[in-house]
Computed example of a mutant assay.
Amino acid sequence: MGWMITGALFEIVWAIGLKMSEGFTDPFFSVVTVISIFISFAFFTKALTVVDISTGYAIFTGIGAAGTAIAGMVLLGDAFDLKKIFFIALLLTGVLGLKLSGETAGDKKGVS
């Protein structure tokens, strides 16, 4: 799960970096964004060795989406309201439910 969370954290970095790079016109944030994309997917790829793709992708994108929404509100001044917080919490509850109910990649019969 550590691979997944680390990858999702870098997904948040690159998503915020896209905004901060101003259409890839700011060299610093452009480089940070591109490097974060590669790191994010490297960790996600590693996580998929122990988690099924169906569960893994949902967890990865769910954490990334929730984290990016929160980071946008905190760091970039995106609109904040309780409905958004409720639905972010609902999204994270669904991600947690998927993680708790999902099989790992090696748990299926006949797969070693």
Rank of each mutant, 00 (worst) to 15 (best):
A8Y: 02
I37P: 00
F28W: 13
I5V: 14
I37K: 00
A65W: 02
L82K: 03
A58H: 07
D78V: 10
G77S: 09
L92K: 06
G67Q: 03
I53M: 10
F29M: 15
Y57E: 01
D78E: 15
L98G: 06
A66Y: 00
D78N: 10
S112Y: 15
F24Y: 15
I53K: 04
V50T: 14
A65F: 00
V32N: 07
A15P: 08
T33C: 05
I63F: 03
T55D: 13
V31C: 09
L18M: 13
E11L: 01
I59N: 13
L76G: 15
A89L: 14
V13K: 02
L75M: 13
G102I: 03
I88A: 08
I70N: 06
A42M: 15
E22M: 14
S54A: 10
K46R: 13
G97Y: 09
M73S: 07
L82G: 14
I39W: 04
S101C: 10
K108W: 14
A105N: 08
L9D: 04
V111C: 09
S54W: 04
Y57H: 02
T55Y: 12
G23T: 11
G102N: 06
F80I: 10
A8D: 00
V95S: 05
D107Q: 10
G56C: 10
K19V: 11
K83P: 12
T61V: 00
A58E: 06
I63P: 01
F86Y: 15
F87L: 12
T25F: 09
A47D: 05
G67I: 00
E22P: 11
T33P: 06
A8M: 00
G64S: 02
V95A: 02
F24D: 10
T55Q: 07
G7F: 05
V95T: 05
T61S: 00
D52K: 11
L91R: 01
F44W: 10
D78I: 09
L18K: 03
V50K: 10
G62W: 02
D81E: 12
L92Y: 07
P27I: 15
T45C: 12
L82E: 12
F44M: 12
L92A: 07
T68E: 05
F44R: 07
A58S: 12
L82R: 04
L92D: 12
I12R: 00
A15I: 05
Y57M: 01
T55W: 10
S21N: 03
I88W: 06
V111E: 11
G106S: 09
I59P: 11
T61H: 02
I85R: 05
F87T: 13
V74K: 05
A66R: 01
I85N: 10
F28T: 11
T93Q: 13
M4S: 06
L90A: 15
L98H: 05
